[in-house]
């Protein structure tokens, strides 16, 4: 795709103030604003629908326009995630871990940008925003360490009767549609996304509807971290428009309803048609808590292989 990411911005660059609020001095350089786009198959396209939606800060100030993804974009994202799934699942577990760790590195490099977007989105001071960004970065490190331990912790030999070797191992379930938490646009997003791809799944994420900008900036970190294109696809737009398409999509294997809100029951019902695995939303999620395996196991299948033993 011709449209590619803007270059990583230096940490000193403040997010764009709303334009035209004050006349600039004649000598002042006009900042170059970032265009917030979708992240699909490793590229950053606009919505195929050509639509966008203004994004405002928590106090209502205009921040930027985000792409307003369409159902077609959602279907394209599933295709991208599906084609990325086999190779991603087949990567060695440690290489997946190294890539996740690289994501943490890339986030650290964009820390100031994430902090500012968090301040804007959540209307909090810089200090707690710094904490949230730190927690989000550390979450990638946490899951980077899980990738090559999941099979050891959850799998193993089964002592069956008879001349057989029998082993069970966890495998990623496939393409996971993730409805990111609405109220925690960065830490919440990372908390639901990282376990999905750590286990070897690929993801189609619907970013927080109200505060999608951190998700797009995260996409920029993902795109520069050796993560193969299509492993994570990020849609910005209306959850109510995109989620039903994803929930009912036969090529979506699992659905994380973290950000589904009132749609949860309807989406779970739609997912039932193809026996899509569903992780129901928690009523009061604590995104700071250490998650353990709780968000990994819902997106795993157990494969058990028998083999005869003999001379």
């Amino acid at each position: 795709m011709a449209d590619t990411a803007t270059a990583p911005e230096p940490a000193s660059t403040a997010p764009a103030p709303a334009p035209a609020t004050a006349p600039a001095p004649v000598s002042r350089r006009l900042p170059v604003h970032k265009t917030y786009k979708l992240y699909l198959g490793g590229a950053f396209p606009r919505s195929e629908s050509g639509r966008s939606i203004p994004v405002t800060s928590s106090d209502g100030a205009h921040l930027a326009n985000a792409a307003l993804a369409s159902r077609k974009d959602a279907r394209d994202a599933v295709v991208a995630a599906r084609s990325a799934f086999g190779p991603w699942a087949a990567r060695s577990a440690q290489l997946r871990g190294q890539i996740l760790y690289r994501i943490a590195e890339m986030m650290e490099g964009r820390r100031a940008h994430f902090v500012q977007e968090t301040v804007d989105a959540q209307g909090i001071d810089e200090a707690p925003a710094q904490d949230l960004v730190s927690a989000a970065i550390d979450r990638w490190v946490y899951y980077a360490g899980w990738t090559d331990k999941i099979a050891q912790v959850l799998g193993g030999g089964n002592p069956v009767s008879g001349p057989y070797e029998n082993n069970s191992s966890p495998e990623p379930t496939g393409v996971v549609a993730v409805l990111a938490p609405q109220d925690s646009p960065l830490l919440g997003l990372v908390s639901v996304l990282a376990p999905v791809i750590a286990a070897g799944n690929t993801a189609v994420v619907v970013a927080s509807e109200r505060a999608p900008l951190p998700a797009v900036t995260l996409a920029e970190a993902l795109a520069t971290s050796d993560l193969p294109g299509g492993v994570v696809n990020i849609l910005t737009g209306r959850t109510a428009e995109l989620a039903p398409t994803l929930a009912a999509h036969a090529d979506v294997n699992a659905l994380d309803l973290a950000g589904a809100g009132d749609l949860a029951t309807q989406l779970e019902t739609a997912a039932a048609a193809t026996l899509t695995r569903v992780l129901r939303p928690e009523p009061f999620p604590d995104w700071h808590a250490l998650p353990g395996l709780a968000r990994i196991t819902p997106f795993l299948e157990t494969k058990t292989v028998w083999q005869t033993v003999g001379r």
């Binding site: 009767s161 057989y164 069970s168 193809t274 157990t302 292989v305 028998w306």
Partner: peptide
């Protein structure tokens, strides 16, 4: 979810059973 190599339709209480998709 269950793959038998050089055998088929073997079951055991210790062996997890169940499907994908």
């Amino acid at each position: 979810g269950v793959i038998w190599s050089n055998t088929f339709n073997k079951f055991d209480p210790t062996s997890p059973f169940g499907g994908y998709r």
